[in-house]
Design a protein around this nucleic acid. Structure first.
Lengths: 209, 209
DNA sequence: CTCCTATATTGACCATTGGTCATTTTTATT
DNA sequence: AATAAAAATGACCAATGGTCAATATAGGAG
């Protein structure tokens, strides 16, 4: 026989239940716990306890711990890229390489000043996962990073046999450098990498050929 | 009260017990299982059952599943780098950039023809872990990759403000590209990346300045 | 407001896992 | 042959992931 608790305390407001209340509570709680203890040392029981929902509810929305991690990463990355792209549009930057470097620099500086996100990445992600999500974002129609790059290369008649490859490699290069330098803080601070990083990117884009 | 089995079947040969027999059996079995099912779906019970040792024995040698993974990765990577370095010594390559590219090309081609290692990496590792181990190998005195690079840069009077940074970024660039292309097979085959990859490396080393 | 149906939520339950440690077996030494 | 030290064992337990029948809630029809 079941013996459920008679009644939980009533919520503060009568209809604060918007449609995805529990889903968002789970996401926010998981982000908090993952950032604090790392995904490895956070159990699903932990998450549901802190979110104030039953364990079964977790499995209504996510397959396992790693699926909620995917959601969190996609959400965080999207916001960051979107913000950087919007900022670049406000500036009036002539050259494509300068524009790409502006975006990259924006993201790097944002990360440097956001220890919470850094900590989340550090405690939970390895570059492979990060990189995978970034690849998905690149093809995202709404974000349009890939499309922007391909269009600009054509428009400017830049001599680049494989723009997709080039953009992908730039992202990989930046991602791995940022990851190693900012997230793991090894072997050197990001400022040391910037000159050679941006010079390399200019070479890869090769706008003056 | 305990009731241990009276006696296990005797081993085939009388003294096949070399000192690290069980350790090696654990490593080999774990490699097999990790390659087959992935570390996520392999339990320690699985490993010890297949290795034919007791569970307690596992904890004599490793802290947890992830420590055995570290050992396996270090072992595999070391062999690969060592082999590539030795091969490069046999060739008589004049320029430093050509030498570095030879080593990289050797490793890439080796990986392309070794589906077992690729599968192990694919099922178990993300680039971050891989990259971390590679960093450790770079500083490894016995392997001497870092030392070799720094020495050569000095000897040839190459204008490079931060050789450590440059080498590190080259490794990161190659690692992430290889990982994405060979391991995850996205978005394009490695041959597409090689020209731009090697051109970029030449720019970074910048031997003709 | 009352009844009804569909949907969301719950938490007791169970199989499996990670990890410990008293006991046993093996090896080395005298 | 006796003894001590080191290696290996597996029964045991707390904690975890995941399931699902029971329960609560929301929305609509009359």
């Amino acid at each position: 026989m079941y013996s459920h608790k008679v009644k939980k305390d009533m919520p503060l407001s009568k209809v604060e239940n918007n449609k995805n209340e529990k889903l968002n509570k789970l996401l926010d709680t998981a982000f908090q716990l993952f950032t604090d203890k790392g995904i490895q040392h956070t159990s699903i029981q932990d998450i549901v306890n802190n979110a104030g929902v039953a364990k079964g509810t977790f499995y209504l929305y996510f397959k396992d711990k790693y699926e909620i991690q995917d959601h969190l990463l996609a959400r965080t990355s999207y916001r960051l890229f979107h913000q950087a792209l919007k900022a670049s549009e406000k500036e009036n930057i002539e050259r494509l390489d300068d524009k790409i470097i502006f975006i990259i620099n924006y993201i790097i500086d944002f990360l440097v000043h956001n220890p919470i996100i850094i900590n989340f990445i550090k405690k939970n992600l390895s570059l492979g996962l990060y990189s995978e999500k970034i690849s998905i974002l690149m093809d995202d129609k709404e974000l349009g990073l890939n499309e922007l790059f391909l269009t600009e290369v054509k428009k400017r008649n830049i001599n680049m046999p494989n723009p997709e490859v080039t953009l992908f490699m730039i992202i990989e290069l930046v991602g791995s450098t940022v990851f190693s330098s900012i997230v793991k803080k090894e072997p050197l601070p990001i400022q040391e990498y910037k000159p050679i990083l941006y010079k390399t990117i200019k070479t890869m884009i090769n706008e003056d050929s």
